[in-house]
Design a protein around this nucleic acid. Structure first.
Lengths: 143, 143
DNA sequence: TGCACTTGAATAGCATGCTATGCAACGATA
DNA sequence: TATCGTTGCATAGCATGCTATTCAAGTGCA
């Protein structure tokens, strides 16, 4: 059997993802945040004061990955965990001022990075690209 | 500013890459190999006895990442490092029998995973998807 | 020849992500 | 109420990938 990585979707998507990630990391390092924290911050910027479980439901991550990243975010002063009023097992996760601050610049950084990486594609092709990925993700979740 | 991760190519490509990776990992774990070792094995199956530098030129990885993964491959008995005949700084990297053995099943596993993940797409759409990624990668390397 | 520069590779240290496991708190039910 | 299964979360341990650093060996040139 033959196998060519340049003709393997898995290989290509891994490589592409690393390009996006390293580009975004470069852009957000000055904001004091990291790519792993990014999707979590996106949710907290919409609504904080939630439990880890509520956060987890909105993220495509394992529970342990989330817990570890939240630990680093707490260490870095982006969030605080406060006692949950009615369930001693959970805590509410709140953004600090430092966690709130980079919001607009982070949105801009992500948009800029997407723009840069997608530069070789037309507007239609960008939509195609994202549409194809949404279908792959959706099929994986339902299959 | 607004930002929706479902409309962010970077977010989608990261998620998609993790789906491919975890699916492939499940398939190749029984072969005694891992996803990080996979691209390296692909090159060594074409030609072994090469130096780390020669290998690195064919891979989209940093030198330190390659060195670390080679360490684990040596630990796992997939490769051996032998003295280079004319340059004491480098070593030749050779596959062991255990490194050779899983080749055909690994190709099959990767093809099967690609097939499974791409199942929701038509043949044309699969080519489109890969073509778009090749252009993104190519632009990133030249820009 | 000797010294400086370059090259090949290893290592340290970190973030991200995973599985597996442990554990305390909760809740339902006998 | 006591017990037992469930839930929420933390931790251990690992692979992958990165940057930065170190170091020995090779190379080139005064």
């Amino acid at each position: 059997m033959k196998f060519e990585k340049e003709n393997s979707a898995g290989y290509l998507v891994n490589h592409t993802a690393r390009l996006f990630a390293s580009g975004l990391q470069d852009r957000i390092t000055p904001l004091g945040i990291t790519i792993g924290q990014f999707p979590i911050l996106l949710e907290l910027w919409v609504k904080d004061g939630v439990t880890q479980r509520e956060l987890l439901e909105k993220l495509a991550l394992e529970q342990a990955t989330l817990a570890n990243t939240l630990n680093r975010m707490e260490r870095d002063g982006l969030i605080v965990r406060k006692k949950h009023p009615s369930d001693a097992r959970s805590q509410q996760i709140w953004l600090t001022a430092e966690g709130q601050a980079p919001r607009e610049r982070a949105y801009q950084a992500a948009n800029d990075q997407n723009e840069q990486s997608l530069a070789p594609l037309s507007i239609n092709e960008r939509e195609q690209f994202m549409g194809l990925m949404r279908r792959i993700i959706s099929a994986a979740n339902s299959g």
